[in-house]
Amino acid sequence: MTGNSDATIQGFGLGLRTPHYQDFLTGTVPVDFVEVISENFMIDGGKPRHILDQIRERHPVALHGVSMSVGSADGLDHGYLHRLKALADHLDPLFVSDHLCWTRIEGFNSHDLLPLPYTDEALDIVCANIALAQDVLQRTMLIENPSTYLQFTADSMTEWQFLDAMCDRTGCALLLDVNNIYVGAVNHGFDPIAYLDGVPADRVRQIHLAGHSQGKDRLIDTHDQPVPPSVWALYADACRRIGPVATMIERDDDIPPLAELLAELDIARSLASDDRKAAA
């Protein structure tokens, strides 16, 4: 397998969002990489692609998808895969990632990251789909642990056991979303430290940090808040177990001025640095 995802790339980045385009185009933004939503740029042309090309000249770019649907029982969309490959070949991204979820069945596309049962059958399907994606893309995929709001009665393993087996069977890497672990732990009552201990640390290539909101009965992964103290604490635990990997903050709604996100990124740098000092 080729592609940068096999290399360990460290550093701190941000999700590239429209309100900050001008900052990235005209100034020097102190980030090591930016991450974009793949589908927003899997288009024929126009200004978004032009802007991304300009930013790519200044910063490494990670591609983060939401529509691959590696959990679809009826397989992957080949048209989608080939569009993603064209974009990846053009950008030479740091990573190509998507989520452990399903969005599509029989032509219906929910445009939401829907949960999977953690069963042997689902594992077989997910692994076959990831293998196909990696074969077409000729890159190691990063798969992100999802935020989930329900569990299935058929579950026969934990989410972290599922991720471990998935990495083992496909050779894929992990994008570990610390906020998603926290949201899942609160919603389903599992121990987030057991989760961190259970995932294969040597397969984690990237970490996501984000905020969440309290819904009526569940924590919701809204990406519309600063990273809360509970997630920072879990990130510190993750750093101790995983060591230095590329880390970034996702903010998709109520997007603040860039300076606020950079200040949050400094907190991540500080926590990761503390871990390195402690380990020295």
């Binding site: 829907l114 709001y149 329900l150 569990q151 299935f152 919603n187 819904g215 009526k216 009965d217 569940r218």
Partner: peptide, 10 residues
């Protein structure tokens, strides 16, 4: 039945 709230979120 515990999943009812989660289903409502989706």
């Amino acid at each position: 039945a515990d999943a009812r709230a989660g289903l409502a979120v989706y």
